[in-house]
């Protein structure tokens, strides 16, 4: 059943209000009925968190920007590397066979372990953030882009072959435009992950960044700042996701107009 845009919005608003009300209720129960001494840590009142956010928005925003901007650079680099890898693997079956196991292995290393290693090598917080964000990004981008490049139908390639198009033209006119929607699937997966990874790197002992805020407020028992920082982080992840969605709308205008087949369009 189709739901109109307006109805969707109403549903979203009802959900948000509902969650806040339930949350307030549980915070009240925890503090005033159960008398949990750790109530403020476990579940503070949402309105106090909101107040803290408003009082500290400038420092939170600054810290968030430090992390977010590095994540964005890393994300961009990782996306470029991922696209290049996908193109190389699509050009040669041998390259795909050689490279793919390494790609898989690379994802077996936990970022939590890799981040300090990278930091010890480069000895620079910003570079570490960028490297880790890129490292997180390249894999989903490469895998999705490759699957897009490999999904082009033989007839579509034959058509270009029949008018004597060279490899470059085939990629330019057919393979890349075709793989775009696959690429954006990879980017959508990667963007929030890149942000999360950058926050993680913050926690290794950076000077600025939202991860530092989370860590210090946790140590210093500033519960409200802690919660406000966590929400800022979550917000950054969501923003990154919607930036990619927005870019997709700009780059693939035909996708918006096209009716969706079973919710997915190749």
């Amino acid at each position: 059943m189709a739901i109109s845009k307006k109805e969707q919005r109403i549903v979203a608003i009802v959900w948000i209000i509902g969650i806040i009300v339930v949350w307030e209720l549980f915070a009240f129960l925890l503090k005033n009925v159960i008398h949990d001494p750790m109530a403020a840590m476990k579940l503070p009142y949402p309105h106090t968190v909101a107040m803290t956010f408003l009082e500290n928005w400038k420092t939170l925003l600054e810290a968030g920007l430090v992390t977010f901007s590095r994540a964005a650079i890393g994300f961009t680099l990782g996306a470029i590397i991922g696209i290049l890898l996908a193109v190389i693997m699509s050009l040669s079956k041998t390259m795909e066979k050689i490279a793919f196991p390494y790609l898989i292995i690379s994802q077996m290393i936990p970022v939590l372990g890799l981040a300090p290693i990278i930091f010890n090598i480069v000895r620079d917080m910003n570079v570490s953030r960028i490297v880790i964000a890129a490292y997180i990004t390249f894999f989903p981008v490469a895998v999705n882009m490759l699957s897009g490049l490999k999904s082009v139908e033989q007839d579509q390639k034959d058509l270009l072959f029949s008018i004597a198009a060279n490899k470059f033209k085939i990629y330019q006119k057919l393979m890349f435009p075709f793989a775009m929607s696959y690429l954006f699937t990879g980017l959508k997966i990667a963007a929030p992950m890149a942000v999360t990874a950058s926050i993680l790197v913050d926690m290794l002992g950076s000077q600025g960044g939202i991860g530092v805020k989370i860590l210090y407020s946790l140590y210093s028992n500033s519960t409200n700042i802690f919660w406000a920082s966590v929400f800022t982080s979550a917000f950054m992840g969501i923003i990154s996701f919607y930036i990619v969605i927005f870019a997709e709308r700009l780059c693939l205008p035909w996708q918006n107009a096209a009716p969706k087949k079973d919710g997915v369009r190749a």
């Binding site: 579509q156 034959d158 058509l159 029949s162 008018i163 004597a164 075709f178 035909w254």
Partner: peptide, 19 residues
């Protein structure tokens, strides 16, 4: 083929969705 002397039409239209 190299001189583009034939045109071909396939069973499916093989149109590019993005164009």
């Amino acid at each position: 083929r190299m001189q583009h002397k034939y045109g071909i039409v396939f069973q499916s239209p093989v149109l590019y969705d993005w164009r």
